[in-house]
């Protein structure tokens, strides 16, 4: 098992014939992902021009793509100015999980998108994320798939490269993952930590969870509180940005210390007080997962 995506997921790409979507559609297929087609408005009725993808149909709208292919997952490779619209189109067409890689979607667009989603069941992962991967089954994103090995750890992070870092540390210790979810570095995420923790708690194969946050916003602490009240599985937390100065945007639009509660130290203190395993040192994330697994008698 896994969360959100698995070997049954039928994936389409929005912005399908673009350079990045083409590259990552091929990579996803090589890993076993069921890519069933894609959307490029204006190119409907054709096949993808790349020889490796030439068997896949191109549609004008997501609704047509869903009707023809039964797709339930979309990788949205659409430039930031048009990305929120593409996401809403996916939701309207009944896509269950829409993943958006784009870095640079205006915040007001995300506010509208989140309002549009009220009362609808679709999940939006991102923006500003490497995406989601269930090793050997389904990859919707841009991460280096070879570092992700199958196992029983669920991982969720705001940062992409820090997700890779933690994954590699775990792999070196023999710890693999069920699913990795990047919720993204923007101030407004389609999916928050709590939603992902809830899915991991419900997934029978996930036995232990790693949550990697960063400075800025109330999400990490809210998630830790939710975990304390609702989770039976151990959770390991890390928050990047101990050395970050106040008031500066550290690369990610969402990574900015606006108040004392936003600092990495305050968040990790709160996580610890709420009973999470906390890795204070980014180089110790793997070791901390190992310790938690051993203390809980979890085999891997």
């Amino acid at each position: 098992m896994s969360v959100f995506v698995n070997k049954h997921s039928k994936v389409i790409f929005q912005g399908f014939t673009g350079e990045h979507a083409t590259f990552h559609a091929k990579d996803a297929m090589r890993m076993g992902t069921r890519v069933v087609g894609g959307v490029t408005p204006g190119k409907g009725g054709t096949r993808h021009p790349d020889p490796e993808l030439a068997h896949l149909p191109v549609f004008d709208t997501v609704a047509e793509a869903v009707a023809a292919t039964g797709a339930d997952v979309s990788a949205v490779f659409v430039p930031p100015p048009f990305n929120a619209d593409a996401l809403m189109e996916a939701i309207d067409a009944g896509i269950r999980v829409a993943v958006t890689i784009a870095d640079g979607i205006p915040v007001h667009d995300m506010i509208r998108l989140q309002r549009y989603r009220v009362g609808k069941d679709s999940i939006v992962i991102g923006p500003n994320t490497p995406g989601i991967i269930t090793p050997g089954e389904c990859k919707v994103g841009i991460m280096p798939s070879h570092i992700y090995k199958k196992g029983n750890v669920g991982i969720v992070s705001r940062s992409g490269t820090l997700n890779y870092e933690a994954t590699e540390q775990m792999a070196a210790l023999g710890l693999g993952i069920t699913t990795s979810v990047g919720i993204g570095g923007d101030p407004i995420n389609g999916t928050d930590f709590v939603t992902v923790l809830r899915a991991f708690e419900a997934d029978p194969e996930t036995e232990i969870v790693v949550m990697i946050g960063e400075i800025g916003g109330p999400q990490e602490v809210a998630a830790a509180r939710w975990a304390k009240e609702n989770m039976t599985k151990p959770v390991i937390g890390f928050v990047a940005g101990l050395a970050a100065p106040t008031g500066r945007r550290m690369g990610h639009a969402g990574a900015i210390i606006s108040s004392e509660a936003d600092t990495a130290g305050a968040k990790m203190d709160a996580m610890e007080a709420l009973g999470l395993y906390v890795a204070r040192n980014p180089a110790q994330i793997g070791q901390t997962v190992l310790r938690a697994a051993q203390e809980h008698g979890i085999r891997f």
């Binding site: 940062s159 490269t161 997700n163 990697i212 990047a240 101990l242 050395a243 040192n281 980014p282």
Partner: peptide
């Protein structure tokens, strides 16, 4: 990557 960049500063510190 912003996250790894922050974590690198943290590790140095």
């Amino acid at each position: 990557g912003a996250g790894l960049a922050m974590a690198s500063l943290d590790a140095i510190t």
